[in-house]
Amino acid sequence: MAVTRFCIRSYPQDLKVFPSPAARISLVWLLLFLLGLPFFSGKYITFVAAVCGVSVISALGLNILTGYTGLISLGHAAFMGIGAYTAAALANKAGFPFLAALPLAGLLAAATGAVVGIPTLRLRGLYLVVTTLAFEFIVEHIIYHWESMTQSDRGISLPTPDLFGYTLDTYESFYYVVLVLAVATALFTKNLAMSRTGRALVAIRDRDIAAEIIGVHLAKYKILAFVVSSFIAGIAGALYAYLLGLISPDHFTFNQSVLYIAMIIVGGMGTVMGSIIGAVFMVLLPEVINAISSPIASAYPILSPRIGAVSVIVYGLVIILFLLFEPNGLYGIWIRIKRYWKPWPFTY
């Protein structure tokens, strides 16, 4: 009896996001931990956790485009920037409330995504990468030079967000907003990936000729991937802007785009779990390097100017090592560990 409870016995059960009770139980524990986090950690850790949440949302968006559909984009930070500056401009200049500015930021980013997506109907591979790269630089340039709107490198500040009458003036309160949206985005992406739409996207990535021959409208789905991905990026950008309270062009540079690519490579391309692990890993990595290096710097003051450079090197090294030894990312390692323990204590 105990065994059959863990077996999948019907199609609807096989199609669930979390088919096994074990997965559901561990998910509940994880959520409880995340809900309690602000209570047993300091202000700074809560802030870092909120940054993790924003990165998770953004990485999920990029994974839909690059991981699932196979359209490599180096312009993800630009979409985030469009979202962030839309929210900032709406809130700062027109007095829009948080709940109105957030979806509008997503929608404007999505509209831009649809336009950027059009060349993908003709371009693929490296040519598409260069196109998105150009887009990234165009957006950077506009943000920097449209001074009347963005205030260039002086940065633009955002008012404290309000939600249903509550003022979200602490990192703790905003952390919960980010958490709810991150969970919602993860569920949305997982559902999308397991549905007809998600399969069509993966089909385009793996073999677009075959996808077309079985009735997948390539143009429609490529544009759709761009729209959904940039919508999520726009939302993430707006959240980031509200979280920081002050944004400047430095937050949405080409380096940031590379960072998001790194997140999904390190985490695992084309998996929801991979986006989450990868984003958290890449946000925490500099924090950990910092925590290790600051005692060293204080003990040997002569090294302190060079410590900063180390974190950049470690970043690059991590990406190279993952590409070489674990192309499936951290998620791939996790799957292998799970598979190893499945038949335990037997060897096969």
Partner: peptide, 24 residues
């Protein structure tokens, strides 16, 4: 995937929990 065009379900409905499983 071969049944792609037999699905009458839109992309937003797909992403709402429960609806997908029923159609699939």
């Amino acid at each position: 995937l071969g049944r792609h065009h037999h699905f009458q379900i839109g992309f937003l409905k797909n992403a709402i929990l429960g609806y997908r499983a029923k159609a699939e």
